[in-house]
Design a binder for these strands. Structure first.
Length: 489
RNA sequence: GCCCCCAUCGUCUAGAGGCCUAGGACGCCACCCUUUCAAGGUGGAGAUCACCGGUUCGAAUCCGGUUGGGGGCACCA
């Protein structure tokens, strides 16, 4: 089995392309087949090396690897059928187009876009299906010469025969189309650039692809491909059309309505293993109630014929949940490593590891870490700037309660030997201080929380104090007391 | 407009004629735990399986139609 993914570098790696790539990858891995990456960059106006780099990098990030094709955006292609970039395979396409021309399966057409548009309009007015009227199919030599003399450059059209095309789709079963409804489509532009429907067929044959797994948006293009395959005398691969990933309104997932660039998810701190797990289940399930799967486990269990037919909405809530599951499953040191890029470089690695237990079960995305525990590395005055004096008051109480709690906390912390500055001792002493002040624990702790973390919600208070240390904790409590005093004066 | 595909809780799904008074998960609600927020635990609401007909002793599962949704019909991919 040889499968391939064929992204077009006309944009960053799209969630849908990633899922299609994943399904291809899993299919290949499951069967012990070969996986090929081919870059479809025949649209030179829109293709860029930057996008190619983004696609390859993010595919690698997900853990998807391939046996043949470019391994890096600016690296060499590896594999027996190199090159794997279509822009480098022009001679082959030219040769195959010539074969089609020679056999009469294709012909040159000199119609201009304006003429084509006029014909289309007329057909629509007559409620006829809009398709090419074959004006150039049987031109005389004189007519062709006239067009050439006119400076017109011809496109090459494939002559679609009126026949019913049937195929057994890997996920949809028997499907049939009536090609007599199709117009003769263009396979080579008038600037000599071959077009998608043509090159995809030529390359799949050249690269000996046995299974073509792609999005459902290509289902109705398949009869064109099969017609081309037959005209060229190629072997017909198996086709499998997987359902589309949808926007919340059930239209095809688009940049307009959803976040579609994989890099955006990566930057927010989604874990690749969570993304892979999530994507895999958008249109497939193992048929059991298990739902946490690693890439290897997926490769083991995935079967293309168990893929669903209906499209699936991209559900952020579910992705968030899965991401949390994967974050919590990480060992502290591992999580610290993953968090590295989301925390200022000035924060020492060992300090970062100490922060992990405080944030681990609160993180939805790695990128949430500054919001959760930024107080640990931000300077005291910055943290003090996060709240107003009034925010120090406990839920039920005012400045007086805040002052009482803060003063009680200051005395308690000041009396502690630095060696005893642990969450456990802190909690014990502070509870005692709350009782001495005649306050409920919650009311007593909340002003302290605000003073220490600058926020009304935070990781556990005493662990936060321990993390910060005695001096910085005291300084922040004094800052809070100062803000309180300023109000009173 | 034409062609094709699809259709189970709001969402992702289990379900291949009797195991289904339709199961799980996310989200939502309540309670428990608790210094806040999470995490965790327990419970709950939520689907006449789009609708109508047919086949069958029996249908979410098979067939037909209807409706709804989606995709495709480029000198884009």
């Amino acid at each position: 089995m040889r499968v391939r993914m064929a992204p077009s570098p006309t944009g960053p790696l799209h969630i849908g392309t990633a899922r299609t790539s994943l399904y291809n990858f899993l299919t290949a891995r499951h069967a012990g087949g070969t996986y090929v990456l081919r870059i479809e960059d025949t649209d030179t106006a829109r293709s860029t090396l930057e996008f190619e780099r983004d696609i390859i990098d993010n595919l690698h990030w997900l853990g998807i690897t391939w046996d043949e094709g470019p391994q890096a955006a600016d690296g060499d292609d590896i594999g027996p059928f190199a090159p794997y970039r279509q822009s480098l395979r022009m001679e082959l396409y030219a040769t195959e187009a010539d074969r089609l021309l020679a056999s009469g399966a294709a012909y040159r057409c000199w119609c201009t876009p304006e003429e084509l548009e006029a014909v289309r309009k007329a057909q629509e007015a007559l409620k006829q299906p809009p398709r090419y009227n074959r004006r150039c199919l049987n031109l005389t030599d004189a007519e062709r010469a006239a067009f050439e003399a006119d400076g017109r450059k011809p496109v090459i059209r494939f002559k679609v025969e009126p026949e019913v095309i049937r195929f057994d789709d890997l996920v949809r079963g028997e499907v049939e189309f009536d090609n007599s409804l199709l117009g003769d489509f263009v396979i080579v532009r008038n600037d000599g650039m071959p077009l998608y429907h043509f090159v995809v067929v030529v390359d799949d044959e050249a690269m000996e692809i046995s299974h073509v797994i792609r999005g459902e948006d290509h289902l109705s293009n398949t009869p064109k491909h099969i017609a081309l395959i037959r005209a060229l005398g190629y072997r017909e691969p198996r086709f499998g059309h997987i359902p589309l990933i949808l926007n919340a309104d059930r239209s095809k997932m688009s940049k307009r309505k959803s976040q579609t660039a994989m890099s955006a998810y990566r930057e927010q701190g989604y874990l690749p293993e969570a993304m892979v797990n999530f994507l895999a289940f958008l249109g497939w399930s193992p048929g059991t109630e298990e739902e946490i799967f690693s890439l290897d486990e997926l490769a083991d269990r995935f079967e293309i014929d168990k893929v669903h037919k209906g499209g699936a909405i991209f559900d952020r809530d579910r992705l968030d949940h899965l991401n949390g599951v994967y974050i919590r499953a990480l060992a502290d040191e591992q999580l610290a490593l993953r968090l590295r890029d989301f925390v200022p470089a000035a924060v020492a690695d060992e300090d970062l590891v100490r922060m992990v237990p405080l944030v681990k079960e609160r993180l939805v995305k790695l990128g949430d870490v500054p919001e959760l525990i930024g107080f640990a590395w931000e300077p005291d005055d910055v943290v003090a700037g996060w709240y107003e004096p009034a925010d120090l008051a406990p839920r039920k109480g005012g400045p007086e309660e805040a002052r009482a709690a803060l003063e009680g906390a200051r005395d308690t912390l000041a009396a502690l030997d630095p060696a005893d500055f642990s969450a456990e001792v802190l909690e014990q002493r502070c509870r005692a201080a709350a009782e001495a002040a005649g306050m409920k624990a919650g009311d007593f702790f909340s002003p302290i929380r605000m003073a220490i973390t600058g926020r009304p919600i935070s990781p556990p208070l005493f662990a936060s104090l321990e993390l910060l240390g005695r001096e910085r904790s005291l300084a922040r409590i004094d800052d809070a007391l100062g803000k309180l005093g300023a109000v009173r004066a």
